[in-house]
């Protein structure tokens, strides 16, 4: 925008009073705040001895997991919508025809570069079958970059680890909408 753009509104600075010009109240104010905090209570959580209390594990955006369908197969249908939505371009999928007669397409390989991920949760939002979800595991670490690129097996194992503590979204939604209008029901339960 050019500085003489007509749409710019120039706002006048409020004039300084005598107190402001003497600078003393500002000096005092600054140092008071500082001193107050110097002695104040500390916020630091001493990880790893202490753990963060996660208020809403279902809403938390931590490590991903790939959910399984009723028969324990990967639920993902390899639609690439998560990869499309991902702003960090960290999801890599290779799709193929599924080996199962009742399903058409499935991810032959599915990897997420957890180092590149910004944990925005867009993939979870985008997934039409609730196959990808973010868990409340937040302290992932690894000794190499390769180790932090999670493949399908690893992502499924995260599901196995967390499925009891954090039930699948669609399962919760179904329970919630059983009595509500059918239109808002999640479509994910259908084997697509």
């Amino acid at each position: 925008m050019k500085s003489d753009d007509k749409s710019i509104k120039w706002v006048e600075e409020p004039p300084l009073g005598l107190a402001g010009r003497s600078y003393v109240p500002l000096l005092v104010g600054g140092i008071t705040t500082t001193l107050k905090h110097l002695a104040g209570p500390k916020m630091t959580v001493e990880s790893p001895e202490q753990r963060h209390a996660i208020v809403d594990p279902l809403g938390y955006r931590g490590v991903h997991r790939l959910n399984r369908d009723a028969q324990g197969r990967v639920k993902c249908v390899a639609c690439f919508l998560c990869a499309t939505a991902c702003p960090a371009h960290c999801i890599d999928i290779v799709a193929a025809e599924s080996p199962w007669p009742d399903r058409e397409k499935y991810p032959e390989s599915f990897t997420i570069d957890e180092l590149r991920c910004i944990f925005c949760g867009m993939c979870e939002e985008a997934c039409p079958v609730d196959a990808i979800e973010l868990t409340s595991l937040y302290d992932l670490s690894g000794k190499s970059r390769e180790e932090m690129i999670f493949d399908k097996a690893k992502l499924l194992s995260v599901y196995d680890q967390t499925k009891d503590a954090e039930p699948m979204r669609s399962a919760q939604a179904d329970r919630a909408t059983d009595s509500a209008c059918p239109d808002s029901g999640e479509r994910g339960e259908e084997p697509i």
Binding site: S3, D4, W10, L16, L18
Partner: peptide, 19 residues
Amino acid sequence: AMAAAPSARDNRPDLSLVA
């Protein structure tokens, strides 16, 4: 010093210069 300090400064760019 306080009395001599300006109470406000016009920080707007000189638009005639820009033009």
